[in-house]
């Protein structure tokens, strides 16, 4: 992405006009993440507000060599959402999470559509190179937000195996992404 198009670079200098552009470019992504990892719509709305404040504060940390702007924003969003989950200590009784279909067909990652295609295509390619069980664990842990214990219960894998798959899977994704030129 040419630096002229970098919303985060403009956010980093406090460019007032970047607020609308930032919301327009990443609003849908953050909203999707927040709804997926929040127990209610109102909670998701609160999370979105906090996430964008975090993005505003952290924009100058964005490293174009480490990943795309969308990946950076998604990282900020996930951190905030995970913090909120932990602070609520609701993992067990989260109604949104309990309603998920863990055998979601998304188990087979494909190149995503729409505005995330460019950013997530490489990640999908990286996931395709994982062992099926590693991919399954990452799907449940990262996308569905299940704990290791919940994944072990869902899949029948030993807890230690789940942890190992999650860790090695992430490392492998990182390796593949780095091998693609450092872009994620």
């Amino acid at each position: 992405m040419p630096m002229e198009d970098s919303v985060l670079a403009r956010v980093a200098i406090g460019d007032a006009s970047a607020i609308k552009d930032c919301l327009q470019r990443f609003g849908g992504l953050v909203w999707a993440l927040a709804r997926r990892l929040s127990p209610s719509t109102s909670d998701a709305e609160d999370a979105v507000q906090e996430i964008f404040v975090d993005v505003w504060k952290s924009a100058s940390k964005f490293d174009p060599d480490a990943g795309s702007e969308a990946t950076f924003v998604a990282m900020i969003a996930r951190r905030r959402l995970i913090d909120r989950i932990r602070s609520r200590a609701r993992r067990k009784e989260d109604p949104l999470r309990d309603s998920q279909d863990w055998n979601d067909p998304k188990d087979d990652p494909r190149a995503p559509r729409g505005e995330l295609a460019a950013e997530a295509g490489l990640a999908a390619k990286a996931l395709e190179q994982l062992r099926p069980e590693q991919r399954k664990v990452l799907l449940l842990a990262v996308y569905h937000g299940l704990s290791h214990e919940e994944i072990a219960a869902q899949t029948g894998m030993p807890l230690g195996t789940v942890k190992a798959h999650a860790r090695r899977g992430l490392l492998r994704v990182r390796e593949v992404l780095a091998g693609e030129g450092g872009r994620s």
Binding site: P112, G114, A126, V173, R174, S184
Partner: peptide, 25 residues
């Protein structure tokens, strides 16, 4: 690095067309 990897994984699975942020939000 691993937070970024997890974020990338999440994006890869986020296949549904993204709904825009609600106007009030």
């Amino acid at each position: 690095v691993l937070d970024l990897a997890a974020a990338a994984v999440h994006l890869a699975y986020e296949q549904a067309p993204l709904a825009p942020l609600p106007a009030h939000l």
